[in-house]
Design a protein around this nucleic acid. Sequence first.
DNA 1: AAGACGAAAGTGGTTGA
DNA 2: TCAACAACTTTCGTCTT
Length: 306
Amino acid sequence: MYYIKKCPECSGINLFINRDKGEIICKDCGLVIEDKMVEFGQEWREHETDSGQSKRRAGAPMTYTQFDQGLGTEVGQRADLFALKSKDRNKFFRLRKWQYRISTAIERNLKLALAELKRVSSYLKLPKSVEEDAAMIYTQAVQRGLVRGRSMESVVAGALYAACRRHEVPRTLDELSEASGIEKKEIGRTYRFVTRELGISIRPSNPADYIARFASSLKLSPETQSKAVEILEKAHHAELTSGRGPTGIAAASLYVSALLHGEKRTQREVADVAGVTEVTIRNRYKELLEKLKLEKEVKKTKRGKR
DNA sequence: AAGACGAAAGTGGTTGA
DNA sequence: TCAACAACTTTCGTCTT
């Protein structure tokens, strides 16, 4: 066994191990570095997360990125027919026809949707585990008839967005929007709708989850990065985080910590990678200086420069 | 000349009656 | 369903480096 310290793709240092999946994932670029590790997890998987039932054993591993999860259902077999009186026979045929229609419709939909899902997911370089999760969410959404009245693509995008949040590798709505070609607000709408209907609870995204990715696209040092996370924690304690957009806060603390480490980036540069405007950074920045008593430190480093 | 700062007006979404 | 509201954006003028 050897240790990987840097992502070979982007040289990011934010690798984390997903033991359940046997993967090492780079939080910066989403690269799955090794997915053939020894299986750490146990052999069951539980998909109905809040059902409260005990975990069940399953046969062959199920995958949600296959349109029928590798399983299939049918109503009845021919042999059953002989046991039925003619009255029930009609019912039987009706049921089977109905079941057939439903299932083929769902399957057709899933085939298309999962292809789209894979496309978007690979565009964003998302880890396999996130893709799986998104596929699961989408499958459930289809089975509950939640796609009706919405475009397939937007539900796919919503499912992906939700999966990213759940796995703490958040992408912004803008990124999802760019990758899927669906409008930002539309994704947000379906995201909220689907998560509510499926009872998926997602905590508000943690600004710290964005730091790694922003920092690496700004080519900031690891020290600056961890300093930014530190600032973030203080900001959290000072009640500066609630209600604000997480990306804005993440961007501002990165900006500050870059200043403090003499790796100055302009507000515009930071704003661009974070997908917010300079003004937002300024506002958050101002708040940070006021509430966290960082003025002295910032001024000190400024003076030191002269 | 570029970046930082701040004011003012506009936008889209949430909330509470 | 509508209006109030907060967060964020856009735009633009001014100050600083």
